[in-house]
């Protein structure tokens, strides 16, 4: 799992620089979830649904929200029970919690957003195997209180959803020249007005619509993030001159 990747330097930095106020913790969680430790872009978790259902914004949004709900639910539950669960059975317990939430979400989607449920197909039950969820349960929720865990779940879920939607938008625009095609499946009939036809295509660029397009698009999004990080780092490099005190091995 992703323990080693999770909570990287940004978390350290933030907590080192400031007092451990709750506000700072929330800020750190936000930053981690949306950017510096984004489950899709940095941890590269949950790629299977990410790549499979990001054909349109609607599908992406649907799966993203489902994942987010599961994440919040599982994080809160895991955080609440963390003190009662011995470490050797924590993974089965986490999995059970997650599976329960996924099943609940699946049932609700089946009942209330049937069209979307049909469109997303197998990928809703597959949320169970989305490593991002158990990763957060293990790396964060099992060590923090439920409020913070809920925020963490929300932010991670949001980060995941945003990437999913971005990828969905890219593929939808390039592939068929529209946005929010089929939004009514998710949001009800009024949402047909959301559909934007950017340009009419005689021949959809099938590459974007098909799974290879998802891989290529994902590659570009990750590259873009790395590029931005690189630029920011370059900008910051000049003003971070610190000198670390050298430890003396011997008495002098």
């Amino acid at each position: 799992m992703s323990e080693s990747i999770a909570d990287t330097d940004v978390a350290d930095e933030a907590s080192a620089e400031t007092t451990n106020g709750r506000f700072d913790e929330v800020r750190t969680l936000t930053q981690n979830g949306l950017w510096s430790n984004n489950p899709a872009l940095v941890q590269l978790l949950g790629l299977c649904p990410l790549l499979a259902v990001s054909g349109t914004v609607t599908n992406a949004l649907g799966l993203g929200i489902a994942t987010m709900l599961v994440l919040i639910g599982s994080n809160v539950t895991v955080s609440l029970v963390r003190n009662f669960v011995p470490s050797e059975i924590r993974i089965p317990v986490f999995v059970m919690v997650i599976a329960t939430f996924v099943t609940l979400i699946e049932l609700f989607m089946n009942a209330f957003t049937y069209g979307l449920f049909m469109a997303l197909g197998i990928f809703i039950p597959l949320i169970v195997t989305n490593c991002a969820i158990i990763g957060r349960a293990e790396a964060y929720a099992s060590k923090n209180n439920w409020q913070l865990s809920a925020i963490d779940g929300f932010m991670m879920g949001l980060g995941f959803t945003l990437v999913l939607v971005l990828l969905g938008a890219m593929r939808e625009i390039i592939g068929q020249g529209t946005l929010f095609d089929g939004a009514e499946l998710l949001l009800g009939d009024w949402a047909t007005v959301l559909r934007i036809e950017l340009f009419a295509v005689d021949y959809p660029l099938l590459l974007a619509v098909l799974p290879p397009g998802a891989f290529i698009g994902m590659g570009f999004i990750i590259a873009g993030k790395n590029w931005i990080d690189h630029k920011r780092e370059q900008r910051n490099q000049t003003d971070s001159v610190k000198k670390v005190e050298r430890a003396r091995v011997t008495s002098a």
Partner: peptide, 21 residues
Amino acid sequence: RNGLILAAFALVSTILVMTTQ
């Protein structure tokens, strides 16, 4: 202890799922 805790979780989860269904 482990067995009982796990069983308890299973019980609650299943009941929850069943009810929702």
